[in-house]
Every structure is written in structure tokens, then in C-alpha cells.
Amino acid sequence: MRILGIDPGLRITGFGVIDKKGGNLIYISSGCVKTSEGELPARLKLILDNLNEVIIQYQPEQVAIEQVFVNINPKSTLLLGQARGAAICAAVMNNLIVAEYTALQVKQAVVGNGHAKKDQVQEMVMRLLSLASSPSVDAADALACAICHAHGGLGLGGISITGYRMKRGRLI
């Protein structure tokens, strides 16, 4: 099973690709899509196009993406949601199943503590995937999302999806 993890962001969107073979997790690739300051539609298109290229290149079977949390600034939350929407569109355009996880769920699955710090997530991702060096914060968050999915996410037998139905690549 090949999983693409996505950590959405308008300035930096992290991505990470792993394979799950039996009980083993194998690192394939990771990186970031960086957008410059500019018009919002152009920035969203850059995220969509770049993630579409990642999907075409690595051929994941499923996608795991971090859910948006509501923060103090509603404008920032809205912009983050639009970046997340562009990322989901890239997956759905390629007929992929999209699973969504909260930051708490991702940290709990990877570190064992839902309130872990960024450097703890980076360290555990490095250990779980036997990486020689620590990935960037955004790439580590994306890989952590993929690891969360591999450790019991949708379609892998960990979370029952009975009673749900698929609509445009998302479980509802």
C-alpha cells in the first residue's frame, strides 16, 4: 500500500510518500511545495499542480491529509482551508481516497502523545522510517500523517468504514 501524506499550508505544503508492506513502513519521498507571495488563485494553482505531479510520479493508492484547526485569526484559517482544498482536489482528480486526521490524531499515532512538539514528531518520523537525517518540519508532518494512516487509517483495517459511503473521493 502506497500512501501520500499531506500537511497543507498556503506558504508551504508538505508531502510525504511511504509504502506499507506488512508491518514495515518504507520511506519513498518527501518534500515541500512552496508558494511565493502573490495572488491567491495562482498560489492555489501551484499547490494543485505540484501535488498532481507528485501523485503522477509516485502513484499512491491513498491519501492522508491533516484537518484544518480553527485558530485565533479567522482569515488565516480560511486561507489554510483553501490550500487544503487545493490539495484534496489534486487527490480527487486522480480518483484517490482521501482520509482526514486531526493534528492530535497524527501526533498520538506517531509520538504517542497528542500534544507532542514539532521536533518530537520529526524525531519519531526519522526513527520510524529509518532516515539518516531529519526531514523539514512540513515534510515530517506530512510523513507523520501518512504513518498515522498506515497505523490504522481508512482502508487498512484499523478503522471501520461500514455505514459510510464515498462521495467525490471522500468518506461521508
Rank of each mutant, 00 (worst) to 15 (best):
C145A: 12
N95F: 07
H151K: 09
L46S: 13
R2F: 05
S130E: 13
A42K: 11
Q62Y: 08
S133N: 11
S30F: 03
F15C: 10
K75D: 15
I97D: 14
T102C: 07
V98F: 02
I3G: 06
G9N: 01
A109Y: 08
V33M: 02
Q120M: 06
L44E: 01
L156S: 00
A139H: 04
A83P: 05
E53Y: 14
K34R: 11
T102Y: 04
G152K: 00
K107A: 07
A132I: 11
A64Y: 02
A150Y: 00
N113R: 12
Y101F: 04
A132E: 12
D138P: 06
K34V: 10
L143G: 02
I6W: 00
S130G: 13
G16L: 04
S29E: 12
I172D: 14
A83H: 04
G112F: 01
L154Q: 14
D19E: 12
A144L: 01
G153M: 10
T102K: 02
E39P: 04
R84T: 04
A132Y: 09
Q82N: 11
A150T: 05
A139E: 05
K75Q: 13
M1N: 08
G23D: 12
N95S: 09
V111P: 04
D119G: 03
G85K: 08
Q120Y: 03
Y164N: 10
V92F: 09
S160V: 07
M166E: 15
A146E: 01
M1T: 13
K118H: 09
K107Q: 02
I72P: 13
V111F: 07
Q122E: 07
V70Q: 11
M166L: 15
R165A: 11
A90D: 02
I3D: 02
A150G: 10
P8S: 01
G85F: 10
N71E: 15
A86G: 07
N71R: 15
G38A: 12
C145G: 09
Q122L: 06
A42D: 15
E39M: 14
G23K: 08
V98K: 00
K107L: 04
S36N: 15
L25V: 01
I28W: 13
G152D: 00
L78N: 07
N24E: 09
A116W: 01
V92Y: 10
K20C: 07
V111K: 01
S76Q: 07
L104V: 15
N73D: 04
T102V: 05
T77V: 06
V92K: 05
S134D: 06
D119L: 10
K117D: 14
Y101S: 00
L51Q: 05
G16C: 06
T35V: 13
A86S: 03
G158V: 03
S130N: 13
M166C: 13
K118S: 11
G23S: 15
V121F: 04
G16Y: 02
Y58S: 08
A83I: 03
R168E: 11
D49G: 09
V106Y: 03
S76A: 08
S29M: 09
C145K: 05
Y58R: 08
S134E: 10
V125D: 00
D49I: 14
P135D: 09
A91M: 02
V54M: 08
M126P: 06
G5W: 00
S136M: 04
S30N: 09
N71K: 10
V98H: 01
L96R: 01
A116I: 05
E39D: 12
G158F: 01
K45Q: 15
A142E: 06
I55R: 01
Q59E: 12
N95C: 05
K21C: 10
C148L: 06
L10G: 07
